[in-house]
Simulated scan of single mutants.
Amino acid sequence: MQVKINGIETRYVLSNEGGGPWLTFIHQLGGDLSVWDQLAGYFRDNYTVLRYDLRGHGKTAVSGEPFGVADLSRDLAALLDVLGAPTTHLVGMSMGGMIAQQFALDYPSRIDTLTIADTTAGTPPEGRAVWDQRAAAARKDGMASLVPATLSRWLTPDFQAAHPEAVEQIQEVLTHTLPEGYAMACEALRDFDLRGKLGTVRRPTLAVAGRHDTGTPPAATQAIADAIEGAQFELLDAAHLAPIEQSHRFAALLETFLEKPV
């Protein structure tokens, strides 16, 4: 399905066979909603599951002007408005986790629970150049130039060897991400910083990290859990896309977490 959100044609998929509470998944930089296919299938009998493509990703149009993570948070709020969702459980991975944190601060009354995976609360000054380099590489050399290094950060060698079909789909999406969409998102992440603000989050929070994540070390995700009162932290045997690489374990953790009384 397509809908215009804040002037941008946005693709979303809604699975509401169960007609239960809303559960929204937000994908990573260089990904699209398909990365959640398996997990959406797991939860759709008991939840109204929403997935969507971020600006400049998948089949969502590229933004006409620069944007920040706060704009991506507003996109989600507008999408929920259009679909008639007053509140949602929110799950975000990597860049999606940054958007989820921003949304929890911007719209605290609209979030039931917060689940973040393989993410950080902000880019330190020494890390800003990396985002500029990736943005420049996408614009100059295209996405193919970024694929090998990105996949090596995202997935362990063991997973890549054991699940070539899953890797192929993730690689296909990354390769066909629009360079300008990717670059603009890199610049948004470069400027992202919620450190010092997360102590105001009062929603139940689950933070998950991959033990072998070199791009976003587990300590960065654990720091978010430490900043939010009562947050739960879990470490999985995976690299950066821990919810995908350890999908069964992640689904079990998420299912147990969502069933806790709020």
Rank of each mutant, 00 (worst) to 15 (best):
D81Y: 04
D81E: 12
D81R: 07
D81H: 06
D81A: 05
D81L: 07
V82P: 06
L83D: 01
L83G: 02
G84K: 11
G84C: 06
G84N: 10
A85H: 07
A85M: 11
P86D: 13
P86F: 00
P86M: 03
P86E: 12
P86H: 06
P86S: 09
T87G: 05
T87R: 14
T87S: 12
T87A: 08
T87Y: 06
T88G: 08
T88F: 03
T88S: 14
T88W: 00
T88C: 10
T88E: 01
T88I: 06
H89L: 11
H89I: 01
L90T: 02
L90Q: 02
L90K: 02
L90W: 07
L90I: 03
L90S: 02
L90R: 10
V91E: 05
V91I: 10
V91Y: 01
V91S: 09
V91A: 09
G92S: 13
G92D: 02
G92R: 14
M93L: 15
M93R: 11
M93Q: 15
M93K: 12
M93E: 15
M93W: 14
S94A: 05
S94Y: 02
S94N: 00
M95Q: 00
M95V: 00
M95R: 01
G96L: 04
G96S: 12
G96E: 03
G97C: 05
G97S: 08
G97Y: 03
G97I: 11
M98L: 01
M98K: 00
M98A: 07
M98E: 03
I99M: 02
I99C: 03
A100W: 04
A100P: 03
Q101L: 13
Q101R: 11
Q102E: 08
Q102M: 03
Q102P: 00
Q102V: 03
Q102Y: 00
F103I: 10
F103K: 08
L105H: 11
D106I: 12
D106P: 05
D106T: 12
Y107K: 06
Y107Q: 11
P108G: 03
P108H: 06
P108F: 02
P108A: 04
P108D: 02
S109R: 10
S109K: 10
R110L: 05
R110Q: 07
R110A: 02
R110K: 08
I111M: 13
I111A: 10
I111C: 09
I111K: 05
D112T: 14
D112Q: 13
T113G: 04
T113N: 05
T113A: 06
T113D: 07
T113Q: 08
L114G: 11
L114T: 14
L114I: 12
L114Q: 13
L114V: 12
T115E: 01
T115D: 07
I116K: 13
A117F: 08
A117K: 05
A117M: 11
D118T: 14
D118V: 14
D118K: 13
D118E: 15
T119R: 00
T119H: 04
T119N: 02
T120L: 15
T120G: 14
T120Q: 15
A121F: 15
